[in-house]
Design a protein around this nucleic acid. Structure first.
Lengths: 216, 216
DNA sequence: TTATATTTTTAGACAAGCCTAAAAATTTAA
DNA sequence: TTAAATTTTTAGGCTTGTCTAAAAATATAA
């Protein structure tokens, strides 16, 4: 239906749209590690196919069709990640690259059966919600630890950075999905955060606090 | 490691090599539904990469490396077919196209874990042997029904034609893997074959007898 | 063994998706 | 509000993998 490149562009635009309604050429180029001129080329093609709204120099947004396609790719990605962790016993920091390939397998029937096989999971191993077969899912209502009040208490429920380096660090510190933590102190000088978890104090940097999400 | 096109060429050459040592340009073109000139182009590239032995006008054969790559693709294809049938409950005539896409997922670790998850199956849903992680597997020692003697008795163990049309026909006639049959008569005029199965007589055409394999 | 048919290769072209370098538009700053 | 900086687009080119048409090699038949 859509080429590999097209799917990757739609996914990137979808992801960037979470932050700002209109997405710029340079943002897409950075996300896909490609050049702005290549992005412009592709944007013309996607607009032609009515997958994005695009006016020269004005940035882009997904059309309804484009969004549907993007959500479907995300569904496939997250279901495969769940499969790799829950059925094949991979660790949460090992699955991203594989799922990046598997998300492009096109059969809808396959994905729906996989979904059923696993018992219709609602979150992938990183806490991200999995869209159902209709494309419905509720966005996580999570906050980065760096943005909550002192003495706030919550459950670790997601990450913003999916790199293995970050996930391995969290694993080592036992900062995994489901853990209950309390924010004890935020050092104003460098925004280092002191947490309490399992009755022990734990110090994390501003960067880590920014990328670790909790449900209050 | 290898492009989609390269993998498909290697697989086609491997398949055609089963029948004749040296494979011709036209045979490959037919197998891949492409043109002879496109095949020539690709053969030059594969020879360059030392995956095939190729001399102009003389046909090709796989090098040891090329064969290793081809067998690996076949391993992936057959394991995914097994997964689709045994875990996701697809029918044996529904899985070929999906596996055709899935066989190109590159991670070796993924395939080895999938293999383990399913208990190291040795045959796919069509009776074809699944190479192990070292690429070892014994070729089926099967005969088409059209080639056995009268009164020969054996177990249906494989097919030569993997098209859904053929598989659906077999399913309807209950001519499935594992069934015990006896060849009662071969009509010399048109090579129609009369089988006995489950104490009932069954008539199959020359074409069906040619594509249905039994272990004696 | 020569003519004909078939197979294979070459030549030249095209689409997709990427690139660099330069031009144009937009934004920011003086 | 004009100049400078930044962003985006255009122009032209490259690679991969495909195609058609024509030429060359090989196989077949008279």
């Amino acid at each position: 239906m859509y080429t590999l490149a097209e799917e990757n562009y739609l996914k990137a635009i979808y992801k960037l749209s979470m932050v700002a309604k209109n997405v710029s050429t340079n943002q897409i180029a950075a996300e896909l590690a490609t050049k702005a001129s290549s992005v412009t080329d592709m944007l013309r093609k996607l607009a032609e196919k009515l997958l994005i709204n695009y006016t020269r120099y004005q940035g882009v947004s997904l059309t309804q069709t484009g969004e549907k396609v993007a959500v479907n790719i995300i569904r496939r990605h997250r279901l495969w990640e769940y499969f790799l962790v829950e059925k094949l016993n991979f660790k949460w920091d090992e699955v991203h690259e594989m799922a990046e390939e598997m998300e492009h397998i096109s059969s809808t029937e396959l994905i729906d059966r996989l979904d059923e096989f696993m018992g219709f999971p609602t979150r992938d191993p990183h806490g991200d919600p999995i869209p159902d077969s209709q494309g419905n899912f509720k966005q996580n209502d999570l906050k980065p630890i760096s943005a909550v009040d002192i003495n706030a208490c919550g459950i670790i429920s997601g990450v913003r950075d999916h790199s293995s380096a970050f996930l391995q660090y969290l694993e080592k510190k036992q900062l995994t999905i489901g853990k209950k933590i309390t924010v004890k102190e935020i050092i104003t000088y460098d925004n280092t955060v002191i947490l309490q978890m399992d009755n022990k104090d734990l110090q994390i940097s501003r960067d880590v606090a920014n990328n670790l999400l909790i449900a209050l």
